[in-house]
């Protein structure tokens, strides 16, 4: 941190240098995972599908009433839970990647960005599989496709980056104290309910805070709108969150780099 210019330069060159390694790590993890499983990619969308189904059933039976949505509710719910899964995977990814790479980190000097980058690849890989689920559900319920579906891909990327940035903020402390990981699990469960995933954004005042204070809401809702309707109701807010995410990502990356030697020092070799 004593020479910022040098730090930025080395950050950039390490990012470039870590692409190939990140790809290798990604290929390693994915191929090892699928070689040891019969159902394979099935697991990529099962959680989203199941939690979506629960809410579809609850809604259809009138057990809960989430108010009116302007597309078939199953499409609304499945897209919502899929995008939520994408976010929660992203926020967990950095800590998970660094923890599983601990032995390597403690002994070998390689660009530390590679671990995060390969985690991002893995999240995106899972997302492409989930996209198939979304397309199937939309076809089944005859929701028309538009160019919005393509536009929604970069929008979903914003969701990934928000998750990665938040996850990277937590990684340094999370590597030292196990509490962070446990708290994160609880937090994400709660967060699901205060995000308009399976219900439309509330309009009434105290509840509408859910949509305005929660940075995930505009991204998730906006991406879903792009997918199903091709437009976004609150584009400025969406863009503002994107800019904040980008800034947050860079700051988190700074932190990650600067704190890594200190974390390794506290780990056993």
């Amino acid at each position: 941190m004593h020479s910022p210019v040098k730090l930025v330069k080395s950050m950039w060159s390490d990012l470039k240098g870590s692409r190939e390694l990140a790809w290798r790590l990604f290929v390693r993890d994915v191929s090892a995972r699928y070689r040891q499983s019969y159902l394979g990619i099935f697991w990529a969308f099962v959680p989203a599908l199941l939690s979506g189904l629960v809410f579809i059933v609850l809604n259809a039976k009138g057990v809960v009433n989430f108010g009116k949505v302007d597309i078939p509710y199953p499409v609304f719910a499945i897209i919502g839970t899929t995008l939520w899964q994408l976010f929660s995977e992203s926020i967990n990814a950095p800590l998970k990647a660094v923890t599983s790479g601990k032995a390597m980190l403690a002994k070998i000097n390689f660009p530390r960005e590679a671990l995060i980058l390969s985690a991002v690849y893995e999240v995106l890989f899972g997302f492409t599989i989930k996209l198939v689920l979304i397309v199937v559900v939309m076809l089944f319920f005859k929701v028309p496709f538009g160019p919005g579906l393509l536009l929604s891909l970069p929008a979903a990327l914003a969701l990934v980056f928000l998750g990665i940035a938040l996850g990277m903020f937590l990684t340094p402390i999370g590597m030292l104290y196990g509490d962070v990981g446990s708290a994160l699990t609880v937090l994400i469960q709660l967060w699901f309910f205060v995000t308009p995933v399976v219900y439309p954004p509330p309009q009434l005042f105290p509840y509408s805070l859910v949509a305005t204070l929660n940075p995930v809401s505009p991204l998730l809702v906006g991406t879903r709108e792009l997918m199903t309707k091709g437009t976004m109701t609150d584009l400025p807010l969406f863009m503002a969150i994107c800019v904040c995410t980008l800034i947050g990502l860079i700051v988190a990356w700074f932190m990650y780099r600067v704190t890594m030697p200190i974390i390794i020092e506290r780990m056993s070799s």
Binding site: E20, S31, A32, Q36, K107, I108
Partner: peptide
């Protein structure tokens, strides 16, 4: 550094695949 031999080996993958992974970790 010849300190952690075989760092990053994945037991499921073949020796050949692991050469690629381990060698890229080493740069």
């Amino acid at each position: 550094a010849l300190i952690a031999l075989g760092a990053g080996f994945n037991p499921i993958l073949t020796g050949r695949e692991n050469i690629y992974v381990n060698a890229s970790i080493l740069g």
